[in-house]
Design a binder for these strands. Structure first.
Lengths: 312, 312
DNA sequence: AGTCTGGTATAAGTTCCACTCATGCTCGAC
DNA sequence: GTCGAGCATGAGTGGAACTTATACCAGACT
């Protein structure tokens, strides 16, 4: 097979018109050029250069090789440029996933910040709950995912690395005209007879485990009247009086007028939010940068958490 | 700059899924692969492969490199195929020139024979007289040319190599109703008072030098009444009674009905026909082959030279 | 938990390639 | 004829690349 380095030498010879001139231009000795061309001709099995006392001239075969060399070397330069773009965050892509409420809250902020700093990187995000996201990360179909977990135990999945972003407090959502809506402080056990809205225990959504744990601590088992994992649907169901629900703060980016949100204090554990990347030590520049930005955004998000906490 | 051999290794790694498998497939040791990839990553300045206990997976940068490697290696294979085609006379080109009468006689035969044997080679021919053809050969704009010379002296031009093809006898062309047309044997000196048609002495066409030499030997200086180097024009002028002319046998592929062609025996030297290629030892496969075929065709052409010689 | 297996990394040694240096050779120009 | 520009070639050296041997790591199986 033809050696590309030697093809480059031939190209320089063609350009300069002699071995000696090519040698000068490439900072080699004339001898090296002569040997390289001889070796290339051996590889090619054809004479590529017609030697004469006054420099050299390419044969038809030599011209063919140079023609291909031009294309190949250009492509090589392109490859290098692309690598440099990826390394310098001026190119490449980052495929992300987030669970619903994160996709509507901190992810848009992070994406905006990332795009501002590195407009060349192609960002994409899909909505995907924890289990699917983890599987996609493992399969290499995703580069980064936001996932949630119940308070306390990080329960890191196999082959995945988690970085904690923030603790997301769980609030109570009531219909506006609910008797407890006007109370200044609500005890969970007062809700023992209520119908609840949310996912089943087998749902991957951590909120359901948090609800179960909290109710158990309050001494009752909640009756789930309707199963849904979609915050906007849940708000609608609460407003319609189907039941009450726990709702994470990240899910309250838009709250309907006809429901009220109440803080339950430490009666319910926080949901924990993590960013997950494939384990294994290596992180792409884009991954590293996005984890960083997510941490920034999360800090800022936690810092301005006031209104609801006071409204409890 | 990225090393293409290493890119090929990376491609194999991507294809096989592990360093070990790639090593087997490329007949190297696993160690060599590991070192090559490490070196490639050093060149690239980016991690290209995510290592794990269960084989490896490419990073985004690695995938980019493989993408480029595919193109480059394909192009390399193309280059090799093209070289092989040129060497095997299944490709390439041959740019030729011939003087007028050769372009109408032996060249078409040679071209037909060449194309039959090597249909892949792109043949081209232009009409060009000796001096221009030699210059084009030297400049590399032509690969091969037919040129003519007066009898005897080969007068090889600088930087050109000549191969003799055939000796082309010169005949006399007379108007059909010329008094000498019916004579069985014509002596040149009987034509001392005729008007002659042909080129001047400064014309590159050898016929004119041959005419001058022959007439001088016959004891007179021919009066050139009209200058032309074009055989069909000359035939027309002879037919119209403007004068008489010498005409080479190669120029008699088509003879008008209203003129007669007569053999002058050894009163006029033969024109010599050569094939010329650039000197310097190297000849492309196509050049070598075409010289060979021209020799064949010329031999065959000389062998069937009978009709006019007998008609003298 | 221990071991086995399939994988990668790395140190050391060897072979081979590519380059330099020195020299010879060719051919065209003055 | 001599000179100069240019290519070829032999000898020697340094470095790259491959092999061998070994360490190491993680998952799978017992």
């Amino acid at each position: 097979m033809l050696d590309v380095r030697r093809m480059r030498v031939l190209r320089e010879v063609a350009l300069r018109g002699s071995f000696s001139a090519a040698a000068d231009s490439l900072s080699f000795t004339q001898s090296a050029i002569s040997q390289q061309i001889a070796a290339l001709e051996r590889e090619a099995g054809v004479v590529l250069v017609e030697r004469s006392a006054r420099g050299v001239r390419l044969t038809e075969a030599g011209e063919a090789v140079v023609r291909h060399a031009d294309v190949i070397l250009a492509r090589l330069a392109e490859a290098e440029a692309e690598l440099e773009a990826i390394a310098g965050l001026r190119g490449g892509r980052l495929r992300m996933a987030a669970f619903e409420s994160a996709g509507a809250s901190i992810m848009p902020l992070a994406i905006a910040a990332f795009r501002e700093r590195h407009p060349g990187v192609e960002l994409s995000m899909i909505q995907e709950e924890d289990d699917e996201a983890v599987a996609a990360l493992r399969a290499g179909d995703l580069d980064l995912a936001l996932i949630e977990g119940a308070h306390g135990r990080p329960q890191t999945p196999e082959g995945i690395e988690l970085v904690h972003l923030l603790d997301d407090p769980m609030y109570l959502a009531l219909p506006q005209d609910h008797p407890l809506a006007s109370r200044s402080r609500i005890r969970l056990r007062d809700l023992a007879d209520e119908a609840w809205i949310g996912g089943g225990l087998d749902s991957s959504c951590a909120c359901n485990r948090l609800r179960a744990r909290a109710c158990e601590a309050a001494g009752f088992e909640p009756r789930v009247a309707f199963e849904s994992d979609d915050w906007t649907a849940i708000q609608g169901l609460v407003a319609a009086g189907v039941g009450v629900s726990l709702i994470a703060e990240l899910g309250t980016t838009a709250v309907r007028d006809d429901i009220v949100i109440r803080d339950l204090g430490n009666q319910v554990d926080d949901r924990r939010v993590y960013v997950a990347v494939p384990a294994g030590g290596y992180r792409s520049p884009a991954q590293t940068e996005m984890v960083e930005i997510l941490q920034e955004v999360s800090r800022a998000y936690g810092a301005r958490r006031q209104p609801l906490a006071l409204a409890s």
